[in-house]
Design a protein around this nucleic acid. Structure first.
Length: 879
RNA sequence: GGGAGCAUAGCUCAGCUGGUUCAGAGCACCUGCCUUACAAGCAGGGGGUCCUUGGUUCGAAUCCAUGUGCUCCCACCA
């Protein structure tokens, strides 16, 4: 096969993914090995891959592939979320394009369209994940509205209802008067709007005075049920027990007192309108006030308003202001900026509207979920999110689980004509229940609740339901083999913004139904932003198309690019240059492979430098491998990748290969070649979780002759074993000498091809001389007790090195260099001396710190001695 | 309004329980190289008051406090 100069990922990636799939490498079934499990945060079924998915799923794939190579039974369960709001909105929009409005359809007709849409567009995102190389067990793909998973949701609802944890209650919803539906908070866009604050006069009953209140919504005064004043407000101390008239309709309402009212806003008097304001509703409950709803579903005033009936709310506002003004009850008008919600879909101003909703009591049920995180049984990475989590869980509010939508699991509540209801799985069961509780019920009188449950009410079951949905709502069931083997899972990789919506609730559900938290670690990724720090969004057009990136740079390149700059919990600022770096790294690996592959191997003696290089790299490799393991343990994935990157590029390519590389056309000895291949394969294994395609491709080519071993790479990760720290350190000094000589060549304009001599005064470890000679192109290395004339010198460690450069020597320059060096070393010595002469330091610093300071002291002293001798010598020569 | 976090090289970030003159990495930048693995490369190099001001300590990028500037989450005042 032809091996191209440049690595070509496009050709390789599809072929290898197909190969992996054919061989079932990603499949997992319970066995005697230790399981490693990740459930995917299910993307929206109709979604398309964006950069956030790329980051999130790359990290999961790295973790899964690594676990698999560590010999664990790794299982990554993929799937999609029905995402009721988002999907329903998309289907509605699609139908609208076809000229069909949702109101024209029955529930079943609409759902038929929705399922068609899902069949057509669902799963696109999963296909896209394959391009990234995601090693999911695709046989296990789940969808939150699969029959069994939906049943699990219904059973869970019934279970919690029977435990008295679910109740019906009134709640303010965001009402869109144009589409005549409630919309979720996520679908409300808040904008700052210039509006007016109207000061209105409410006459006091039985007196000739009045109270002035400030409001932005004068059209709702007919729904007022009280005026509220802060009890600490001395201006109104005499208002206790009094009543006022609502202007225009002259209805008497009481004055009440509550500290909720801010004294310095407006006049300090608040009109209480429970039907049209959330806070007022709460006040209404507290003081047992009536609720008067004067606005209909289409945004028009109704009969209860008494005046302006049938007028649109905004028209009514204008008219009532004029009426109040005419009546002399409008005191003044102020400009005011208020934050108003608009419907994302229709741009209508959202009307807060009271409606009956279903709630889950959270106070008791959420306690264990708090404990798991506080005790560390569930670790958040990074742990800074622990505080946020704690704060939220300690102030948790009941969860509104009903949504006024059709796409989702329908609430299993059945209403009787009189408004009573029963909760049951089927209409037959509901009928049985209803008959027991209430008499003379006919089955066709039962009407099921129109609403569906919140999407999170299905996805909170995900880590359980993907394995065995039947235990949801049935904690007494033992569960199937899959569940007992894979649950609890290991790591969850998700975004911090859904820590509460999803993560906390999964812990609650997992505890409720299995008595165990669903995972041990939660790795929280950041948000992918553009390089200016802006969130990626369609409207800004600043989000690159991930598939195009993959085509351009290769999946491995994109993966590396994303990983390099993504520490846990921090946002990543995406820039093409990162992905370029990833692509370049692929090319580097490819070319190293080409070099190794090109060698002729012969039975010739092994050069000393090769033996030394092998010895050194073996230690360096294992040292780095240990660092990589440590970084993985701490979930420092980008650091682990950087370790591997530098090991490959800087150590393996720039040093190891350069040392052992034979001159053009010359053969390589057998044992060096064998060792090199072994190193190369181990490097491929380390890199495989990050860059699965290129590593697999090279591995397959290298092992072309052992077909039966083709799965070896995917199942093994090298383990770090002992390494010789001293060899690594000594080699660092050798590198230092090489760098000095190379720098000297550059400054003196000496060609890399020209041989130089090297003299050493002081101790030198001679074990790497052959390496030194090759890389620095030195023809001889000699020890000397005397200084060398016409030589440039430098110090490494405590030894001095001389390179004779003949008439290229510049004594002034050399002197200057030495003087700088001695000055620096003296400063260094002074700081060390200062510490050591400080009794408090010597007494209170730990032993090893003092010892290392003493060593520094003596090293610096001997350096200064050498330098000063040299300076003296050069000065006397220079005269 | 409540809560949390961040501030280190031009950029993105490391710096774990204070202790090497501790100020690091990658990218970018500058200089010299088309040296038969690789110009998507090779070799060498420059670059920072660790946000301000105090405090604790023998010793602070690291711990504490204040100020400033950003970011996020929750609740949103008529």
């Amino acid at each position: 096969m032809e091996i191209t100069t440049k690595y070509n990922p496009v050709e390789v990636e599809d072929r290898l993914y197909a190969y992996w799939m054919e061989n079932g490498f990603f499949n997992s079934d319970p066995d005697e090995r230790e399981p490693y499990t990740i459930v995917i945060p299910p993307p929206n079924v109709t979604g398309v891959l964006h950069m956030g998915h790329m980051l999130n799923n790359t990290i999961q794939d790295v973790l899964v592939r690594r676990a698999r190579m560590l010999g664990k039974n790794a299982c990554w369960v993929p799937g999609t979320d029905h995402a009721s709001i988002a999907t329903e909105a998309k289907v509605v929009a699609k139908l609208r394009e076809q000229g069909i409005s949702k109101d024209q359809l029955t529930r079943n007709e609409f759902l038929k369209h929705a399922w068609e849409w899902k069949e057509k567009h669902g799963g696109i995102i999963l296909e896209q994940l394959k391009k990234l190389g995601a090693s999911c067990d695709w046989r296990r793909t789940r969808f939150t509205m699969d029959e069994k998973l939906s049943e699990a949701v219904i059973d869970t609802f019934i279970y919690l209802y029977n435990k008295n944890l679910i109740y019906r209650g009134v709640r303010m919803v965001n009402w869109d008067p144009v589409s005549k539906t409630a919309v979720s908070d996520e679908e409300v866009i808040h904008k700052d709007v210039n509006s007016k604050l109207y000061y209105l006069s409410y006459p006091i009953v039985g007196e000739n005075k009045s109270l002035t209140i400030a409001t932005t919504r004068p059209e709702t005064i007919m729904a007022d049920v009280a005026i509220c004043i802060n009890p600490n407000d001395e201006r109104y101390a005499d208002m206790k027990g009094k009543k006022v008239y609502i202007p225009l309709i002259n209805k008497e309402i009481p004055v009440i007192f509550d500290e909720y009212v801010t004294m310095d806003f407006g006049t300090g008097c608040l009109k209480v309108t429970p039907a049209h304001d959330v806070n007022d509703y709460a006040l209404g409950i507290k003081y047992n006030l009536p609720v008067i709803d004067i606005i209909d579903n289409d945004g028009r005033l109704n009969q209860k308003a008494q005046i302006l009936v049938g007028e649109d709310r905004f028209a009514a506002r204008k008219k009532i202001v004029r009426m109040l003004d005419d009546a002399g009850l409008l005191i003044k008008t102020e400009d005011y900026k208020s934050n108003i919600g608009f419907s994302e879909r229709t741009d209508a101003v959202i009307e807060p509207k009271l409606s009956m909703q279903w709630f889950l009591k959270m106070d008791e049920i959420s306690k264990p979920a708090l404990d798991y995180v506080l005790s560390g049984d569930v670790k958040l990475i990074p742990d800074k999110f622990k505080n946020t989590y704690k704060h939220w869980m300690e102030n948790v509010r009941d969860w509104c689980i009903s949504r006024q939508l059709w796409w989702g699991q329908r609430i299993p509540a059945w209403y009787l004509p009189d408004g009573n209801f029963v909760v049951a799985k089927t209409v037959d069961e509901a009928f049985n229940l209803a008959q027991k509780k209430y008499n003379n019920i006919k089955i066709d009188e039962l009407r099921q609740d129109e609403d569906v449950v919140d999407t999170w009410f299905s996805s909170w079951l995900w880590p359980v339901s993907v394995f065995d949905p039947s235990v949801c709502g049935h904690p007494e069931i033992a569960g199937n083999a899959d569940l007992n083997y894979y649950y609890p899972t290991n790591d969850l990789v998700t975004a911090p913004e859904i820590l509460f919506f999803w993560v906390a609730r999964m812990i609650i559900a997992g505890h409720e139904f299995r008595g165990k938290a669903p995972f041990s670690n939660v790795y929280l990724t950041g948000i992918v932003r553009d390089k200016l720090g802006r969130k990626m969004s369609k409207s800004l057009g600043n989000s690159p198309d991930p598939l195009k990136l993959i085509e351009q740079y290769g999946a491995d390149g994109v993966r590396v690019g994303m990983l390099l700059c993504s520490s846990a919990g921090n946002d990543i600022l995406y820039d093409d240059s990162q992905v370029e770096q990833g692509r370049n790294f692929c090319n580097k690996i490819w070319n190293a492979f080409r070099l190794v592959k090109s060698w002729n191997v012969e039975q010739i003696p092994q050069p000393d430098y090769s033996a030394k290089a092998i010895e050194w790299f073996n230690s360096k490799f294992n040292k780095t491998l240990k660092e990589i393991y440590d970084n993985f343990d701490k979930y420092r994935i980008s650091e682990a990748l950087m370790n591997a990157y530098k090991l490959f590029w800087d150590d393996f390519c720039a040093y190891y290969l350069e040392i052992i590389k034979p001159s053009y056309g010359a053969p390589v000895d057998k044992s060096t070649h064998t060792a090199t291949l072994a190193f190369f394969e181990n490097l491929l294994k380390i890199l495989h979780p990050f860059m699965p395609f290129i590593t697999e491709e090279i591995w397959l080519i290298l092992n072309d002759d052992k077909k039966e071993n083709k799965t070896v790479m995917l199942s093994q990760q090298p383990k770090p074993y002992g390494f010789d720290e001293k060899i690594v350190d000594t080699f660092e000094q050798v590198k230092d000498i090489i760098i000095n000589i190379r720098a000297l060549r550059q400054s003196k304009n000496i060609s890399p091809k020209e041989y130089l001599d090297l003299f050493v005064k002081g101790d030198i470890d001679l074990s790497f001389t052959s390496v030194l000679m090759k890389l620095a192109n030195v023809s001889k290395i000699e020890k000397t007790d005397n200084s060398i004339e016409n030589a440039s010198s430098f110090i490494v460690g405590t030894s001095e090195y001389y390179v004779p450069v003949g008439n290229k020597i510049d004594l002034d320059e050399e002197l200057e260099k030495l003087k700088k060096e001695v000055e620096y070393t003296k400063g260094f010595l002074a700081s060390v001396n200062k510490k050591l002469s400080n009794e408090k330091f010597v007494n209170s610093a730990p032993e090893n710190v003092v010892v290392s300071e003493r060593k520094k002291q003596s090293d610096a002293e001997s350096r200064i001695k050498i330098l000063e001798e040299n300076i003296a010598r050069l000065q006397s020569n220079n005269i």
